[in-house]
Design a binder for these strands. Structure first.
Lengths: 193, 193
DNA sequence: TTCATTTTGTAATGATCATTAAATAAAGTG
DNA sequence: CACTTTATTTAATGATCATTACAAAATGAA
């Protein structure tokens, strides 16, 4: 039944692979680098995951699971609604600018690199976006009821405005030198709600 | 003095190369593909441009030159300010979704793929963003003076809000199936101004 | 025509690419 | 113990990578 036991935990390998894909993107991540970072030999890696692409999808999935948890935690913490949304955007700025190379958001990176030609990745990102949209829509509705958020526009539209501005911010984080630009995006977005 | 004459026009080669980089990204664009699409042999390509990276930067530069022209033309055409901003966003949606694979915006693609690790590309994108920001700020100020745009917030902040939402839209264009989401981004952004 | 100069086409460079094959090792089961 | 099963290690696969070397070709100048 059960032959030689695995010498690694699946999640740990995926975490290490995630780091590689996140930093380099899919194309620029070689099997070599993946093996080095995960500590597995080629054989083990391919035996466990099948292909570079499958490992990439597993990595992206895991990143999104962790990410949506963090984001929802921020969105549902106590305190003023706009304060939560501000924390979310400021957290994204710190997160994306952390480290010498700006890795940005792995979801955005994947959407832009592969979303246009890889249906599997596109579906993964689309699904994740829907989750975030839903969480945002929920807090927008909450804010509208309490009067913290303008009620002139539907909550869903406000959620989608925030969503696009939020992802745009994460693109800007990759290249913009002027931090005031990023902070103005935060101020402008919150003032619009 | 002047040896054998070149058999191609620089700009035509760059246009062809731009198509390859745009569709595939930097890493996934091979010298092979570049030669096929430009019609040049390897020798000629490298003699003329030096490296794949240099050709990439030339392509991105050219894309941005064309792009900023189109964008400014839209922003400075006659008619209501918000109408122009709407046209800009709707044009981006059509532009990015055109064709079977969604190539998106070459500037965004480059920012996300290379912006975090390639200072040359990051500077190119940063500069282009500043140009667009300036053009946006100009029309925002115009709209504020005419009463078409709210004056509660500084024009620069509104420009930056639009900028981030605009780039976010171009990320979403890559993966989102639900066109209503994209249209809500347009409505929401315009309503915020 | 001869020379210097530049471009072009082709072939080759060595490196690296993702993936697989085969031998070895470690476990449970009988 | 022998046997099946699964994992690991290592070496090898053929393809493709960006780049260069070099000889042939095309120009203007002398």
């Amino acid at each position: 039944m059960s032959g030689r036991p695995r010498e690694f935990k699946n999640t740990e390998v995926i975490d290490a692979a995630m780091d590689v894909f996140w930093k380099n993107g899919f194309e620029a991540s070689s099997a070599q680098k993946l093996c080095e970072q995960t500590g597995l030999g080629r054989g083990s890696l391919y035996n466990a995951f099948g292909s570079k692409h499958a490992l990439f999808e597993a990595s992206l999935k895991r990143y999104q699971e962790i990410g949506i948890q963090e984001q929802i935690k921020i969105l549902e913490q106590p305190g003023p609604i706009k304060g939560r949304l501000r924390i979310l955007m400021e957290w994204a700025i710190e997160f994306d600018l952390k480290g010498p190379e700006r890795r940005g958001c792995f979801t955005v990176n994947s959407a832009v690199e592969l979303g246009g030609k890889d249906p599997g990745v596109a579906a993964l990102v689309d699904h994740h976006i829907k989750n975030l949209e839903q969480a945002l829509c929920h807090v927008m509705a909450l804010g509208q009821r309490s009067g913290e958020i303008k009620s002139k526009r539907p909550a869903l539209e406000l959620a989608r405005l925030f969503l696009s501005s939020y992802y745009g911010l994460r693109v800007l984080n990759k290249v913009v030198q002027d931090r005031n630009l990023l902070l103005d995006v935060v101020e402008g977005t919150l003032a619009a709600l």
